[in-house]
Simulated scan of single mutants.
Amino acid sequence: MLADARHVMPDSLKFRGDATFFNAALDRADLIVHGRNSHEGQPNSPRRKRIVLTRTIEQLAGDPSNPNATLWNPAGVPFEAACEAAGVTSGTIAIIGGPIVFGMFMERYDAFYLSQAPHVHLPDGEACFPGVPERTPQEVLAAHGLRASEPQMLDPEFGVSVTEWRR
């Protein structure tokens, strides 16, 4: 699960090592893509180019609250057009969720970084991918042609790790 039943990431899922890894990855990205409920909420956030998925518009629009954000309705225009509208036509794109957004890109990932906090349980929480909890996140990633590397420990005190899954 990546959030609680209210679609909010609770403090019990926030770990220093994971946040450091996540922030560094976003600092290297040329574009961030996420749903309207997701946001990394960091000091650099407003400066990052982003595409926000939403059904509240027909195609594309600028975000009136953030000049670096482009609002995109995937039913209205292709992803490549959204990238062009955001001013990014090459480079690294970081998809930060939620589950519908992650699911949309399953066939396009070059790499996906799956963080796990094994001692945190969120009954009735929001699953990370479509098809979870019927299948594990690892089974979903493998079914889409991604293969796991060795996990990297991010926070040994809490057993939090990240595994890179590559095509």
Rank of each mutant, 00 (worst) to 15 (best):
R135G: 02
E164K: 15
M9F: 03
F15D: 04
A24R: 15
M9W: 00
S149W: 00
M153G: 04
R28L: 08
A127M: 05
E139N: 06
A127L: 03
G41Q: 11
P78H: 07
I51F: 05
P133N: 01
E58W: 03
M9Y: 01
T70R: 10
S115W: 00
I95V: 15
I93E: 01
S90R: 13
R16P: 06
C83N: 12
A61S: 13
P74M: 07
H121D: 15
L114F: 08
P10C: 07
R108H: 10
T163K: 12
P74F: 05
S45H: 09
D30A: 04
G87D: 00
Y113A: 07
V132Q: 02
S115E: 11
I93D: 00
A148K: 11
I100P: 00
E157Y: 09
A148T: 14
C128H: 01
D11C: 04
D124K: 13
Q152N: 02
V77S: 12
G91N: 08
F158I: 04
G103L: 12
L31A: 09
R6T: 14
M104C: 02
D4M: 11
V160L: 12
L141F: 09
R135T: 06
S149I: 03
I57Y: 00
A85I: 09
A111D: 08
D4A: 03
E40I: 04
T20C: 08
S149T: 14
L53S: 05
L53A: 14
P137V: 03
R108E: 09
C128V: 14
L122S: 12
D30I: 07
G41L: 15
V77H: 02
D30V: 04
G98C: 03
E150R: 15
S45F: 02
G35R: 07
S90C: 02
A143T: 11
P78E: 02
M104H: 08
M106D: 01
R47N: 13
V160H: 04
A85E: 06
V8K: 06
V52C: 05
P151E: 09
P64E: 11
A142K: 10
R28I: 06
V162P: 01
P78Q: 10
N37E: 07
A75D: 15
H34Q: 12
E134L: 06
A25K: 05
H34S: 08
M153T: 15
P156A: 15
W72I: 13
T89P: 00
N73I: 00
E157G: 11
D4G: 03
F21P: 08
G35V: 11
R147P: 01
T54N: 11
H119I: 13
G35K: 12
F15H: 11
E84A: 15
G131S: 04
P151Q: 05
K49W: 09
